[in-house]
Design a protein around this nucleic acid. Structure first.
Length: 127
DNA sequence: GCCGTGACAATGG
DNA sequence: ACCATTGCCACGG
């Protein structure tokens, strides 16, 4: 049968496969592309279960802070950094600049902690 | 079929 | 900038 019970994770893998070389996306972005909003954890879980030789560019997925989120046990984080560097993606102050390398996200959110502070302020004053 | 897990994200301190 | 807490929910045991 052509279409089968595609596990939900397969959908995630399809999205990740579409991230072009030299670009990065956040877990949240991938989730959104899958039609899930606010389900970024599932993306992380899916990638966690990823088989070793899947050919899926898992290293192009990072967290919203522009950093590598996985632990460096087994040197996995270092490995990811290496793969990214190989594609020309550089870290600036220990983070990836979404304005340069973001696949979907264009740039307002990263390093722009002002908006985060503003919304926090608005919340406080309105409460 | 319930429960713990998790490579996240947003908020608070 | 860093740490803790909370919300989110599919998957496996």
């Amino acid at each position: 049968m052509p279409d089968r019970p595609k596990k939900s994770y397969d959908h995630i893998y399809d999205i990740v496969r579409q991230i072009p070389r030299g670009k990065v996306a956040t877990y949240g972005d991938v989730a959104e592309q899958c039609g899930w909003i606010n389900h970024s954890r599932l993306v992380g879980y899916a990638l966690h279960n990823l088989p070793p030789n899947s050919g899926i560019p898992w290293h192009r997925v990072i967290n919203s802070q522009g950093k590598i989120s996985i632990s460096n046990l087994y040197g996995l984080a270092d490995f990811q950094r290496h793969l990214l560097a190989k594609e020309g993606i550089a870290f600036t102050n220990d983070r990836i600049d979404f304005t340069k390398y973001g696949w979907i996200r264009r740039g307002n959110r990263s390093t722009n902690h002002e908006s985060a502070q503003r919304s926090r302020w608005q919340k406080r004053t309105s409460l």
